[in-house]
Simulated scan of single mutants.
Amino acid sequence: MRHQVMMGVVAAMVVPGLIACSANGNEIPKSNAVSATLWDPCYGISDDVLRTAGLLPATKDSGITRSLHDRQKICRWDAPESAYSVTVFSADETVTETELKPWNVDFQDVTLAGRAGRRFKIAGDSKPFGCNVLFAAEQGAIQIHVFIDPSLVEREQPCQRLDLVGRSIVPVLPR
């Protein structure tokens, strides 16, 4: 049950604000992004990388937004005992398009595993359970979202966990 509630919260927070590209001048024109084949995180991130990131490969869930499969690919994995989950979104939107959505706020430049990205929050999200980072990619962008079990937020912040998980995952993301 807790897993279902967490997935509902993740979907409500993240799905409206899906992915993008970079506002630092490296943005790919939309016409190129749409024509590119979307990278699939369920197959593009190896089990070894997931284990190094502290995730359980057997918890893979690729069906969380089947109706949007033409414009995005999404995959989610849990950590042991569902302490946190990581969702990777691959989409044809750009970072700029994501930044223009009114529900995505407080964008900041970050560097994670040597790659420039944009960290952001969801407007109205009063609880610090999730953290999002976008990375530019030829197809559009890749987003990593970490969701911490609400009972554990006092001990660990989601953006700190994303930084740790990102050390393993970011290097295998497409550019």
Rank of each mutant, 00 (worst) to 15 (best):
V133Q: 05
A123S: 14
G117S: 02
I74G: 07
E81L: 07
A79E: 06
S90W: 02
P102F: 05
E81D: 11
T96E: 14
S126F: 11
S82G: 07
F89S: 08
N104C: 09
G114A: 00
V105G: 06
A123G: 07
A123F: 05
G130A: 14
A123L: 12
W77C: 04
N104F: 04
A83C: 01
P128S: 14
N132T: 03
T98N: 04
V86M: 11
D78Y: 06
N104G: 03
V133S: 05
G130D: 09
A83S: 11
S85F: 03
R76Q: 14
Y84L: 05
K121N: 15
T94K: 15
N132E: 09
E93R: 13
S82H: 13
T87M: 08
R118D: 12
P102L: 02
A91E: 04
V95L: 13
R119K: 10
E99S: 11
G124D: 15
W77N: 02
E99P: 03
F89G: 04
Q108N: 09
F107V: 08
V110D: 01
L112Y: 04
V133F: 03
W77P: 04
A83Y: 05
L134E: 09
R76N: 13
R119E: 07
E99K: 11
L112V: 03
I74Q: 14
F129N: 14
E99R: 14
S90P: 02
E81T: 12
D106G: 03
C131K: 04
C75P: 02
F129K: 09
I122P: 05
S82D: 09
K121L: 10
V95K: 12
K127N: 12
D78C: 01
V88Q: 03
E93G: 08
R119Y: 08
P80S: 11
A79C: 08
E99C: 12
P128N: 13
V133I: 11
T87K: 02
D125S: 15
C75W: 03
R115H: 01
D92P: 00
D109V: 02
F120I: 10
A116T: 04
W77H: 02
E81W: 11
T87I: 09
F120W: 11
F120L: 09
F107D: 06
V95M: 13
F89K: 05
G117L: 00
A79P: 07
S85D: 12
V88K: 03
K127C: 06
T98E: 13
R119N: 04
V110A: 03
D106K: 08
D92C: 06
S126D: 14
P102Y: 08
A116P: 01
V110E: 01
S82W: 10
G130E: 08
P128Q: 10
A91I: 00
K121Q: 14
E81A: 15
T98A: 09
Q108A: 10
R76M: 12
D106Y: 01
F120K: 04
K121A: 15
E97W: 07
R118F: 07
D78T: 11
C131Y: 05
L100P: 06
F107L: 08
T96A: 14
D92Y: 00
S90H: 05
V95G: 15
C131R: 09
F120T: 08
T94H: 10
F89P: 06
G130Q: 07
Y84R: 00
E93Q: 10
V133R: 08
G130W: 01
T96P: 12
R115D: 00
K127E: 12
F120S: 05
T96H: 10
P80K: 11
A91F: 01
F129D: 12
T96I: 09
